[in-house]
Each structure stands twice: as C-alpha cells, then as structure tokens.
Design a protein around this nucleic acid. Sequence first.
DNA 1: CTGAAAGCGCTTACAG
DNA 2: CTGAAAGCGCTTACAG
Lengths: 346, 346
Amino acid sequence: MKKSMTITEIAKEAGVSKSTVSRVLNNKTDVLPDTKERVLRVIRAHQFQPNAYARSMSQRRSRTIGVVVPHDIDYVFQNQYYMEIQRGVLKALTKRGYYALILCCRDMKKAFDAVLQKRVDGLLVISPLYEHTPQINELLENHVPLVLVGKAPASQKVYQVCVDNYVGASAAMRHLFELGHERIAYINGPHFLPSSEERRRAYLDAMARQGYPVLPGMVQEGYNSIDSGYQTASRIMDAFPDVTAIFVASDYMAIGVMDAIHDRGLDIPGDISVVGFDNIQMSEQVTPALTTVCQQIEEKGRVSVNLLLDLIEEVETPEKPVVELEAKLLARASTGPVSVKTAKKC
Amino acid sequence: MKKSMTITEIAKEAGVSKSTVSRVLNNKTDVLPDTKERVLRVIRAHQFQPNAYARSMSQRRSRTIGVVVPHDIDYVFQNQYYMEIQRGVLKALTKRGYYALILCCRDMKKAFDAVLQKRVDGLLVISPLYEHTPQINELLENHVPLVLVGKAPASQKVYQVCVDNYVGASAAMRHLFELGHERIAYINGPHFLPSSEERRRAYLDAMARQGYPVLPGMVQEGYNSIDSGYQTASRIMDAFPDVTAIFVASDYMAIGVMDAIHDRGLDIPGDISVVGFDNIQMSEQVTPALTTVCQQIEEKGRVSVNLLLDLIEEVETPEKPVVELEAKLLARASTGPVSVKTAKKC
DNA sequence: CTGAAAGCGCTTACAG
DNA sequence: CTGAAAGCGCTTACAG
C-alpha cells in the first residue's frame, strides 16, 4: 500500500519510461527480461497496482458487468433462487477476472444508467418478465452485449440461457403417472413470468394425453411465495378433496403446499404427493424432502457469464442464441404411490 | 443512448465550453439560467450521462464501496444472514447514490486489490473472524475508511456495528427460566467467530446465577449449519435425556436441533424447548415457529452503510466507534413451560 | 526493445 | 457568469 503510487513514479524509480512499465503491467512480449525484472522489483516493493478506472478509460472497457435483477430488492434478497444464481455468476466472473455490479430495480433504470455511464461492458438480465421486453429491445438496438438468464419474454434473437421447462414439467407428470396418480392438481407461477406458460402447457398436455380430466379450479395461479402456496393448496383441497397429487410450479410454493397439507392432518406422500420445481436448497431440507425438477441454477449462472464474456471479448459468436439446459426430475420423499385408501375414493 | 456522446460534443452542440457543461452536470450554482436550460436540453435530447470512470479519476473518488465478505462464496450465498445484510446494505447505498462491489473471499485479498486499484472509496467488512485481525489492522494503518459489521475481532478503535450478544443471550436464558427450565443445554457457534464467546458467557453466567448445574457435555460447539445442529443435538440428547430446553447460538443450527428432536418422536415445546439466535427469515417459517433473539440484520446493514459513507464524506466523526444495536427476544412457538411429565424426571 | 506524445472523458483552479 | 488550460493515471500507436 504505502503512499499511493502511480505508474510515473514506478517508472522513475525503475529508470524507464511509463510506456515500459505499462508493458510490464500488461504482460506484453517485447520487453527485455532484465528490464522487466527491474520494473517488477519496484512494483512489488510498493505493492503497486494500477488505477483500475484510469485503465478502463484508456482501454475503453471496464472488466465489470452489470448483473440486472429487474425485481424488487426485498423480494430478491430473500429468495434462494436469486442467491444461487448470484453464486454461479460471481464464481464464473471471478474466474475470468471480472467484477460485478448488482443492478437491482424493477424498471431496469439502474441498468440503463450503468450502460450510459460506461460502468459496465455488458449486461446479464436475471429472470426478465414480459413487461421488460421494451427495455430489452432498446438495449439490443444499442448493441449492448446482453444475455438473458431464464426464459426470455422477447421473441428476439437475443442470447439466453434457460432450462427446458416443458421437458422438466413433463418429467414431473410422468413420475406422478407412474405412481398411479390421476387426480392431479396444478399450481402455476405468476402469469407475468415467461416460464409459467410452458410449465402449464406441459401439465395440460400430459393430463390430456392420459385422458385424465382437468376440472375447472384444478389449475390455479400462485405468486411464488410460501404463503401463496399455502393459500392456493387450501383452496384446491377444499374444492377437490380427492386429489392425490399436486404439481407446483416452484419450490417455494410447494413448501407452502406441504404446510397446508400437514395442517389438515394429512400425510405426505401417504395422502397427497407433492412435486415442486427449481430445486432450491430448502427443498432438500424440508420434511419430507421435496421431489422437484432441477433447474441447475448455479450452472445457469455459470454458463450465462461465460456466454456474455465471450460476446464481450468477441471470442466467438455462439451459433444459436438459446442455450437450453436439461431440467431433470429429482425424486425424493414427497411423492409416493397412490394409497389403497385414497385410490378407492377415485 | 444514441451514439456515445461526450461532454465535448454536448458543449459544441449547446454552444458553450466543456467547463459549463460540467458545471450544469454537477449542479454548480454560478450558471446563467438561460445557459443552463440550453445545456440541459441538449443533454436530455441525447440521454447523455457522463462517463463514470472519467469522473472518478478527476474527482478522486468512485462513489463505490467494497462489501467484503471474508468467507467462502459457497457458504455465503446460501446463508440467509448474509442475504439480509446485503439487502440492508444495498438499499442504504442506493439511497445515497453509491454502488457496491461484492468482494467475497476468505483471505480478503480481493478487498486489498480493490483498494490498491482505487476501485472503492471505503470498505464494509461483514462478520470478520479473529483470523482477519492482521488484514484489518493493515487497512487501518493505511487509513482506508472502514466499518466492521458484527462483533469485531480486534481491540482497535475501529468503527463497528453490532448487536449486544450478551444482553440478547441473557434475555433468552431469562425466558427459559421463566418457563421453569433448569436443565438447559447450550450449543455454541464456531469458536473462531467473535460473537460466540459473548453468547457462551451469557449462558454460563445465567446458569450460575440461578445455581443450575452445567455438566460437562452440556455445552457443545457447532458450525452454524443445519446439519451441524442436528448432529450436536443428537449427541446432547443421548448424553442428557433429561434436558428440557436447548439454547442454540444460531437459527440455522436451531433448525437442525428441531429436526433432531422431531426425528426422535419428541414434541417441541412439549418435551424440549428450543431457542435460536439471529432471527433469519426461515426461523418464522419452520414448524413450530422458532423462538429466537433478533439480530436486526437488515438494520445493521443500513446503519453501517450510513456510518461508512459519513466517514468517507467526512460529514462528521461519530463520537464512539462502536454502535451496539439492541438484541431483543422474540418468543414464538418453540418454547413453552416445562411439562409435568418432564419436570417430574428432574 | 524503448521512449515521447497524444488521447481516454471528465473536473478544477485560474483568469477575465 | 464563462472559457482555456492543466491534470487525473493509464494505454496506444508511432518513431527510432
């Protein structure tokens, strides 16, 4: 640390020009080994590190990316999904020597500011909603390097990393069918979330394929909170006392569903089986452990960072803009065969 | 957005000098209203925002602070405590127009890099351990604006925002005494965490004051994870079948303790009462809801940010460097009176 | 292989 | 009230 050094003082002390110090700092080839060693010695002696912002200015890039989470901060910093995404993102970013600026606001204003002020080289947008389509399009028109994480709302040719919701939800339904369930209710995520529609479609298609009836009220919409899962499940159990399984579009809601079932003195999976979606950490900790569809959350963060940095560094333009990760079913303890007792009722 | 503008182009288009544009941008007083309006019109027309890093260079401050979390990233981004701290920090930072750089690494190397590269104007260190004392001292010697969040390991006169662990833990013990408990076990946090010692002392003092025996093995150390709470509680219940209450130094461990109790077919609080510490969000969601000591996590983040920014902006030097927030007991459903059945055993 | 000069986009005294 | 100049700490052609 010592007193704050600059490249000029290092140059003077090493008896070379600033240019040479800069070359050493940036590991350029054409520097005489002797010179290089002499400069390095001075640098080390003073624990010198070049001013990052001066560097950004002349290099015209900041090695910083904006991690945009277009939702309310209270919601985001309480939701394990975002934590795990951030973990994957931060790890990958660190590995490639980049910094992150968390830009958390519903209307994406802070994202635009960061771009206009040249704070960031590119943007990662986590779970955009339909309502963010105009903003995303504006960024694209301005050629801001951009990768969406999660199902994209836009139909654009924008880079995005997501999970195959349809395949994942279908696997969940197949699992329930194999256990003998026919009376299966579904709790969807918010309609303004692009992934919800795909999961709902998978549920409906699966039920139709089996020829099982989907009565009005057997499909409900929740708001991704534990509490909302609780409320919605209660409504379903009131209306359909004979459901033997509930497929839920998110783990948080599924945990609320489990609470509601337990509060009625029913057993999971003895009386009702529950399947979630996401595989957040909590899904393994609840009792019984929740059967769920794995979103590969951390992996999604990792992949999208590498895609974005390749875009920024122009390493190569990936052929197709959509990376679709596999969504696999994780069968745990919250699902089981239809019990004799329950089956009789049907 | 349009093409990337600079202050020079704005100046030309408005028919003034760069100096004047700069004055308008920074809301300096002495600019003729007419001139100001003319400049503003051009700025708005181009959605111009000045380059943040150029600004940082000449102003010699970045309006960015480093949020240092000296622990492993996998641990941090999975722990609600850190999420809630981050929430309070981000909110307060945003309100005062600052940006945050998350610097997450055990040895604090990234924090030093950020300081040397002048990326940040100051540092917030979240939950430092004893082992970080040398690093903290080095930062202080170099006059880096610094605020520690959580009990400080150093004896220095360093600014810190923490909760009164002793008072909080004492309140928890008093609560158990009032419910008639005498046979109370204690699970401490890791010894390398400065707060652990205070909580342990409060437990021991309280037991001694009441004259209740603390047998060897009734005080154990866990590692702040759900699993570690589970393991430790099991050991305690094996050795002391007659404990009627367990006081646990963190909510995560307390949740594991609850699992362990339930897995033995025992009731909470019917057979054993459990008290946690922290009041993370999950503590309210488990069944039964956990009685715990509230850390005011988000508030801690808010207060420390404002302290740090005051330090940086030299608004005023707060009189005493240690801000100690109140730690209040939140009595919920996991504690109850000693049952007749159990009491007899004693 | 190395240095002098220009430039990155701002702000800040200094004149006037 | 406004402008010209210097400076913030780097990097990047351009010479040599």
